[in-house]
Design a protein around this nucleic acid. Structure first.
Length: 803
DNA sequence: CTTGGTGTGATGC
DNA sequence: TGCATCACA
């Protein structure tokens, strides 16, 4: 039972942190995130610690919060399709989980902002190096039993920690020593989270999930708590029953009332048998064990959710009373689900098979909830909507009043899909696999040549479009037809044309091929016209967007991407022999191809068969119209479907340019105006809805040193949790910005720890021939195009310099 | 009207 | 086994 070491990490007021990262001017100010602004200032779903000081809590209205804290900043979550859009936070949560995965194989995402991590193995590895844990190794750690619970007093923390460490080494208490080592690992993990995402979190460290979760809540924010078995009873003496996970609801109430247990320690008096008789056998046992700090629930490795769903309430007057209403909201919900499914397919290579519609009805002011499920046969939003309607139809029992009437009214409608099945890489079932075919494979399997393929394509469409590589179905679903020979052209075309496709490639590349590419022989160019001979794997470290990339470089980058795809290998032929195959899985819906239709490029659309083009264009028109109605929608989409690069620093325009032969790196910040939106919106890594946008060219840790070197002992300092250096308060915010920028740079450089250096942007020669040529493996340096922005730049040195 | 939107898991047919 | 429903976070 004591063999495992488990950590629960919980992000501090996560939504607020996400918003503050997006808009750094919010940092340090009282802040709350609200949804549905209209009524009483909207409902608060997150409050930062500054605002909590004023007594603002979750479940308050924006207006109430204002009363308590007049200076509070209320950030509204964007509304898309008439409902709150939380994808920002989901995506940010995934960034965090990615960091956890660097530390353990066994990570269970418990919610958008929480994860359990089994770090038993890491501890085991680390403890072999037998060294004694020092208090300084655990700078933000509390230990239950040695420190006052509920106190965040730093002196108390240190005293408790010191005495605990002395104790466990004196007593050679290896069980607790393992916890101490775990504490170090979790300190590192949290530091890594902050470095790589800019988010702060708290953590609990113990031997099981229940205790881990409990511990985590004891010292927040930005602290971690070790709960050794010896501390459990100490804690339980005062811990209300309802604080324990699974006892916070009805069951917990029953336990409290039937047994008269106010605090956890009160449960100890009952035998297992007694508890089993009071409750169910299983629950009795569970309770008996939990009362003793025992919980065997394993951390099950799961990084992605088992279902994807969305829902909406229609309280009071808003209840859906017509068929039109129901159809409308089903289409909204379907659209969201389809969009998320398209992303999910790319990211997780799995396909949902079950569709569930749930709804609550108001039958004479009496709630009844139901749900119906059926097979999910397509990712097409219209199809989902239609299937969902079939499922919900049954609820329209009394259609008195007219053909369009829905009765009893629906007060809640939810769509969810699940039962995911993996799409193996051997199945050439999606467009993604289509792009994975290698040149080797294609030449090896004696596939048809381009002319033949085009003939096949033409024969299977209306023959009007020579460039077509898809077969089209009536409903608008498509499937790829070609093999590499012409997909080479197509991919190149698509890359050139579409930010959608490109981000798609980027994501794919990032997830699957970076490592492969680094080690794969990518020397032989696939095609002169497609590949830039000057491109090299260096580019992988720093994928950039169109915006700040000159044309020539763009093509080189893109062809490299293409080449990476082709070097993945292990994909079966995708040639015309699939024309007759009509399995549902073979088909790709438009949503899948264009997760965000508003970013679908004309040139890509042109690759589609003529009938389909019209349909897509109609959708684009609609999307444009919608986005005019809500400009937030556009900006949300800009960030929602792309790689981490966007999320790491939403307020920055990112260009990852590095260059050797200099010993200093520079970040240039190019403030962008809102007026630039027309240009910038074409770049997938551009954020335009914050007041400041910057262009980051490159950074190096030396800046960090420099900023620290300027520390004055007489100035009030704050210890940076990243580098553990003391930074004057006046510089602290910018110092943190530095880390964010540094992190960004690392990401752009493939996460390599060694940060390369680069020249100051402002001194960069515009002509590539002026750049140093002595580079590894004779590569040409990348060209920079920051001047395109036409804005004056500040170097990082001045940017981070004390005022 | 109004702690809403999401997600997981247990239970019982 | 699969689905509907509930409970909880």
């Amino acid at each position: 039972m004591m063999d495992r070491i488990i950590a629960l990490v919980d992000m501090d007021c996560f939504y607020c942190q996400v918003e503050a990262r997006l808009n750094p001017s919010l940092k340090g100010k009282p802040l709350a995130v609200v949804q549905y602004n209209k009524w009483k200032g909207g409902g608060i779903i997150a409050v930062n610690y500054e605002a909590r000081e004023f007594g603002v809590t979750r479940s308050m209205r924006g207006d109430e919060a204002r009363k308590k804290c007049p200076d509070i900043i209320l950030v509204h979550v964007p509304e898309v399709r008439g409902k709150a859009d939380l994808s920002k936070y989901r995506d940010a949560g995934r960034e965090v989980v990615d960091v956890f995965c660097q530390f353990s194989e066994c990570v269970q995402r418990a919610s958008v902002d929480e994860a359990y991590i089994d770090i038993t193995e890491s501890v085991e590895q680390r403890i072999n190096n037998l060294y004694q844990v020092q208090p300084s190794h655990l700078p933000t750690t509390f230990v239950v039993g040695s420190t006052d619970i509920d106190s965040n007093d730093e002196d108390g923390r240190q005293r408790g920690l010191v005495s605990w460490l002395e104790n466990i080494y004196e007593l050679q208490d290896t069980a607790q020593q393992r916890l101490a080592v775990a504490g170090i690992i979790v300190e590192e993990m949290r530091t890594a989270v902050f470095r790589q995402t800019g988010f702060r979190c708290s953590a609990g460290i113990s031997h099981n999930k229940i205790l881990g979760k409990l511990a985590c809540g004891l010292h927040k924010p930005n602290r971690q708590t070790i709960l050794p078995p010896a501390g459990v009873m100490d804690l339980y003496k005062t811990l209300p029953v309802r604080k324990v996970r699974n006892l916070g609801g009805k069951f917990g109430c029953v336990v409290v009332e039937q047994l008269g247990c106010k605090v956890m320690a009160d449960l100890l008096q009952f035998t297992e048998r007694q508890l089993q008789q009071q409750f169910h056998e299983k629950m009795g046992t569970w309770l008996y064990n939990i009362a003793r700090g025992i919980d065997s629930d394993p951390v099950t490795k799961r990084l992605v959710s088992k279902s994807v769903g969305c829902c909406k309430k229609f309280p009071g007057r808003q209840a859906l009373t017509t068929k039109t209403d129901v159809q409308f909201w089903l289409s909204e919900l379907s659209a969201e689900v389809a969009e998320r499914l398209a992303k999910d397919l790319i990211e997780n290579k799995r396909r949902a098979k079950l569709l569930t519609v749930s709804y609550h009805q108001d039958i004479n002011s009496d709630f009844t909830s139901s749900s119906r499920s059926g097979p999910l046969t397509s990712y097409d939003p219209q199809r989902i909507q239609a299937d969902a309607f079939e499922l919900v139809k049954k609820s329209n029992t009394g259609s008195v009043g007219g053909p369009d009437v829905w009765n009893p009214p629906l007060v809640f409608l939810g769509l969810s899909v699940g039962k995911f099945v993996d799409e193996g890489t051997t199945q050439s079932s999606t467009i993604h696999d289509f792009f994975k075919a290698t040149q080797k494979e294609s030449s090896k399997d004696g596939s048809k040549n381009v002319t033949e393929l085009k003939k096949v394509v033409d024969d299977n469409t209306d023959g009007a479009d020579n460039h077509c590589i898809m077969q089209v179905k009536e409903c608008g679903e498509i499937k790829p037809l070609a093999n590499l020979k012409n997909s080479c052209e197509v991919v190149s075309d698509m890359c050139k044309a579409s930010s959608t496709s490109k981000s798609f490639f980027m994501k794919y590349l990032k997830q699957h091929s970076i490592a492969t590419c680094a080690e794969t022989n990518i020397d032989q160019p696939i095609s002169k016209s497609v590949l830039d001979p000057d491109s090299d794997d260096d580019l992988f470290e720093s994928p950039v967007t169109d915006m700040e990339t000159p044309k020539e470089e763009k093509s080189s980058l893109l062809s490299t991407t293409t080449r990476a795809e082709f070097n993945l290998g292990a994909s079966t032929s995708l040639v015309g022999n699939q024309v007759d195959d009509d399995t549902t899985e073979m088909w790709v819906s438009l949503t899948e191809l264009f997760p965000d239709i508003s970013k679908a490029d004309d040139d890509v659309v042109a690759l589609l068969p003529t009938p389909l083009q019209k349909r897509v264009q109609a959708q684009i028109e609609k999307a444009k119209h919608d986005s005019n109605v809500s400009s937030k929608h556009v900006s949300a989409n800009l960030t929602s479907d792309d790689t981490n690069m966007t999320h790491t620093s939403d307020s920055w325009l990112v260009g990852g340019h590095t260059q050797a032969e200099t010993d200093r790196a520079t970040v240039s910040y190019v403030p962008l105006n809102h007026g630039d939106e027309a240009e910038t919106s074409s770049a997938s890594h551009c954020k335009t809805d914050t007041s400041h946008a910057y262009l980051v060219t490159s950074v190096t840790p030396s800046i960090c040193e420099e900023s620290n070197a300027e520390n004055n002992q007489n100035v009030v300092c704050e210890t940076c949790p990243q580098c553990r250096k003391d930074v004057p308060l006046s510089e602290y915010a910018e110092h943190l910005d530095f880390h964010a920028a540094e992190k960004l740079h690392k990401e752009l450089n493939g996460g390599s720890v060694h940060v390369r250096t680069a020249v100051t942007t402002s001194t960069l020669p515009k002509n590539p021939s002026e750049l140093p040529t002595k580079r590894k493996r004779g590569r040409l340096p990348r060209k920079l195009s920051v001047t395109d922005c036409g804005k004056k730049m500040r170097s990082i040195t001045t940017f981070f310099a004390p005022k």
